[in-house]
Design a protein around this nucleic acid. Structure first.
Ligand code: MN
Ligand code: MN
Ligand code: MN
Ligand code: MN
Lengths: 159, 159
DNA sequence: CAATACAGTTAGCCTTTGCTAAGTTATTTA
DNA sequence: TAAATAACTTAGCAAAGGCTAACTGTATTG
């Protein structure tokens, strides 16, 4: 392993930040593309889990309504979720999460809650916090989640 | 205007949060889908602007390298940016931003910087902050940006 | 200045995520 | 219980965003 020649000058306040090294920059975008591959899956399983918990069952029509998409779109997505082993169902019947689906739903729900509570603790209004959390949650690393939780706890502790 | 019947119980700590009303829930997801439509465009114009500022010109090969994507993908995307009036170029030559492209780049760059500085102020390491900011930036409302700036200023002021 | 290397484009393919329209199954109700 | 309504599925379409392979144009350099 040879050290990459570092042509990044040390940070200065008077000029615009230099571009990061190409490989690091590429990794940033790759991480985003990566998040985009799983984010819809996460939202679906999280929603299915929430529907089961709050209304006793998860039906396609409810999902379509809450996601704001057509039932056909939900039907196709459910097919994908089944083929990925996250969801189980019989034709024309309501949906269930597999063990794997439950696990993903649990993680997603928790991460979502941390981000939402953090935004509220930051002083963002509830409506805005909900909207922003829905998108941000998929792009937040564990390290950032930890920092958010620290802040939220501090903030509520000081009340 | 009639007030929507509010079946959301007042928040309780002992039970899981209730689901938001369907229309509000749908709006959350719609906002995310919306952000996804412009997010790549924003990253491209921001990068093109940065390349012009830092290296004098923006070439497809550089973009491909920094985005971690094939040159063919860049070529196609540049076609889209041109058809949207954000970028101008002659075949086989380097890229320029239109007025509209400049405006989008300016906004994106500023928003990106606010999110990045905020994450650092929160205590997130530089590498992680860069990665998370690249994704989060597209899902952050003006209200949240304001809250982030307030926090960052406070934090640096107290140093 | 010819050969080579590098940069950019085009064609053709794939997956994801959306849609509408049309069909099928299940449930409700007259 | 037959008819009507609601729920679900399927087929077929489109746009976005990736890829590789093949081609074309530009720049370097022997
Ligand atoms: Mn979520
Ligand atoms: Mn989400
Ligand atoms: Mn950006
Ligand atoms: Mn970005």
């Amino acid at each position: 392993m040879i050290e990459t020649p570092d042509d990044t000058p040390s940070p200065s306040l008077s000029e615009a930040d230099a571009l990061p090294p190409s490989e690091q920059h590429a990794q940033q975008y790759a991480a985003v593309r990566n998040a985009h591959e799983t984010e819809l899956l996460e939202d679906y399983v999280e929603l299915i889990g929430d529907l089961i918990a709050h209304q006793g069952e998860a039906r396609s029509a409810d999902i379509a309504l809450r996601m704001g998409v057509s039932q056909a779109t939900v039907s196709k997505m459910v097919g994908r979720l089944k083929s990925l082993g996250l969801v189980a169902s019989k034709p024309y019947r309501s949906l269930f999460l597999t063990e794997e689906g439950e696990a993903m739903a649990r993680m997603s729900r928790q991460r979502h809650a941390i981000v939402l509570q953090f935004l509220r603790a930051l002083g963002v209004s509830d409506d805005t916090a909900r909207i922003d959390a829905e998108g941000m949650e998929h792009h937040v690393s564990q390290e950032t989640l930890d920092a958010m939780q620290r802040f939220t706890r501090l903030q509520s502790g000081e009340g």
